[in-house]
Amino acid sequence: GLEHMADEEKLPPGWEKRMSRSSGRVYYFNHITNASQWERPSG
């Protein structure tokens, strides 16, 4: 619920959580730099 939404908002600017269609794993994508990574971004 609300706790999940608050957790999402802690991601650094530009980052969003996405799911890989090929593997079904969650990864993180930065739409500003077009960077993507499996680890949760910090800072």
Rank of each mutant, 00 (worst) to 15 (best):
A6S: 13
A35I: 15
G43L: 11
G24N: 09
E8G: 09
W38G: 03
L2K: 13
M5S: 11
D7P: 10
N30M: 02
D7H: 09
R18P: 00
P12G: 04
R40F: 11
F29N: 00
A6L: 11
H31F: 14
P12A: 03
N30K: 00
S42Y: 09
P41F: 02
S23K: 07
L11K: 06
T33L: 06
R21G: 15
G43D: 12
R25G: 03
S42V: 10
W38R: 05
S36F: 14
E9Y: 09
G24H: 08
V26S: 05
G43R: 09
W38M: 05
H31L: 13
E39L: 08
Y27H: 02
G24F: 04
M5C: 14
R21E: 15
E8S: 10
L11R: 01
Y28L: 00
A6Q: 11
S22C: 11
P12E: 02
A6E: 13
K17E: 07
M5H: 10
E3F: 05
S36T: 14
G1R: 12
M19S: 08
A6W: 09
P12R: 01
G24S: 06
N30R: 01
Q37G: 01
S42N: 12
E16L: 04
R18W: 03
F29H: 08
R25P: 02
P41S: 01
E9W: 08
A35N: 07
G43P: 11
R40P: 08
R21A: 15
F29G: 01
Q37H: 03
K17A: 07
K17R: 10
S23Y: 07
E9A: 09
S42W: 09
E3I: 11
N30I: 02
P13N: 08
F29A: 02
E8I: 09
D7G: 11
S42P: 07
A6M: 10
S36G: 04
H31M: 09
W15T: 01
P13H: 09
S42E: 09
G24A: 06
R21K: 15
E16A: 04
Q37E: 02
S22V: 14
Q37N: 03
I32G: 05
V26P: 09
N34G: 15
P41H: 00
S22A: 11
R25M: 06
Q37S: 07
E16I: 07
I32M: 09
N30F: 03
H4N: 14
S23L: 06
W38I: 06
L2Q: 12
R18E: 03
H4T: 13
L2Y: 13
K17S: 05
M19H: 14
V26F: 14
R40L: 06
P41D: 00
K10D: 13
K10T: 13
N30E: 01
R18Y: 06
S42G: 11
N30P: 00
R25Y: 05
H31I: 14
M19T: 15
E9C: 14
G1H: 11
P41C: 03
S22W: 11
K10G: 11
E16S: 06
P12S: 02
E39Y: 07
H31E: 06
D7I: 10
H31Q: 08
V26Y: 13
K17V: 09
P41Q: 00
S42Q: 10
L2P: 12
N34P: 00
P12M: 02
K10C: 14
G1D: 11
S36K: 12
A6R: 12
Q37V: 05
E9S: 08
T33I: 04
G24Q: 07
G1I: 12
S36I: 15
P12Y: 01
L2G: 14
T33Y: 06
E3P: 13
E39D: 09
G14E: 05
P13M: 08
S22F: 14
R25Q: 07
G24Y: 05
V26W: 13
K10M: 11
G24I: 03
D7C: 14
E3K: 07
T33H: 04
L11N: 01
E8Q: 08
R25K: 09
D7S: 10
Y27M: 01
P13W: 12
K10P: 15
D7K: 07
V26G: 02
E39G: 07
R40A: 08
S23E: 12
Y27D: 00
H31W: 14
H4W: 12
P13R: 07
W38L: 07
E9F: 07
R40N: 06
D7M: 10
E39N: 10
M19P: 04
Y28N: 00
R25V: 06
G43W: 15
I32P: 02
Y28A: 00
G24V: 03
M5T: 11
R40D: 03
E16Y: 04
A6H: 11
R25T: 05
W38E: 05
M19V: 15
E8H: 10
S42K: 13
G24M: 06
Q37M: 06
S23M: 05
E9K: 07
R25F: 05
E3N: 10
E8P: 09
V26T: 08
N34D: 03
N30D: 02
E3W: 05
A35T: 13
M5F: 11
R25A: 06
H4Q: 12
H31P: 06
M5P: 13
E8W: 05
S36D: 02
G14Y: 07
S22M: 08
P41G: 02
L11V: 08
V26M: 06
T33N: 06
Q37Y: 03
Q37L: 04
E39S: 08
Y28V: 00
W38D: 05
E8L: 09
F29M: 02
S22Y: 14
H4M: 14
I32E: 08
E9T: 08
P12W: 02
E3R: 03
A35Q: 14
W15Y: 03
M5E: 13
R25E: 04
G43S: 13
R18N: 02
S22G: 14
L11I: 04
S42I: 11
Y27A: 00
F29I: 04
E9R: 06
R40C: 01
Q37I: 04
Y27E: 02
W15H: 01
H31G: 05
E9L: 07
E16G: 03
P12F: 01
F29L: 03
A35G: 05
R25L: 08
I32D: 07
S22D: 14
M19L: 14
E8N: 10
N34F: 12
G24L: 06
L2N: 14
R40E: 04
E9I: 07
E3A: 13
G43Y: 10
E8M: 08
L11S: 01
P12T: 01
S36E: 06
E3Q: 13
P13S: 06
Y28E: 00
R21F: 15
K17Q: 08
K10I: 12
R21C: 15
M5R: 06
M5K: 09
T33S: 06
E16F: 03
H4K: 06
T33R: 03
L11E: 15
L2R: 08
Q37T: 06
S23F: 08
Y27I: 02
D7L: 10
G1S: 12
H4I: 12
S36Q: 08
Q37F: 03
A35R: 14
R40T: 08
R18F: 05
E16V: 09
G24D: 05
N34I: 05
P13F: 12
W15D: 01
S42R: 11
P13G: 05
A35M: 13
G1Q: 12
R21M: 15
A35F: 10
R40W: 07
Y28S: 00
E3S: 12
P12Q: 02
M5A: 11
T33A: 04
P13L: 08
S36N: 05
P13T: 07
S36Y: 11
M5N: 11
P41N: 00
R21Y: 15
P41A: 02
W38T: 06
E39W: 09
Q37A: 04
P41E: 01
Q37R: 04
M19W: 15
Y28T: 01
K17F: 04
P12D: 02
G43F: 15
L2F: 13
L11P: 15
M5D: 14
G24R: 07
W38A: 05
V26R: 03
L11F: 02
E8A: 10
M19Y: 15
T33D: 04
R21L: 15
P13Q: 07
P13C: 13
P41L: 01
W15N: 00
P13K: 07
E39K: 08
M19F: 15
S23R: 04
S23T: 14
R25W: 04
N34C: 15
I32Y: 12
I32R: 09
G14P: 08
G14K: 01
L11W: 02
L2E: 07
S22P: 15
Y27W: 05
A6K: 11
E39R: 07
P12L: 03
R18Q: 04
N30A: 01
G14D: 05
H4G: 12
S22T: 15
R18K: 08
Q37D: 02
E8D: 14
K17P: 04
I32F: 12
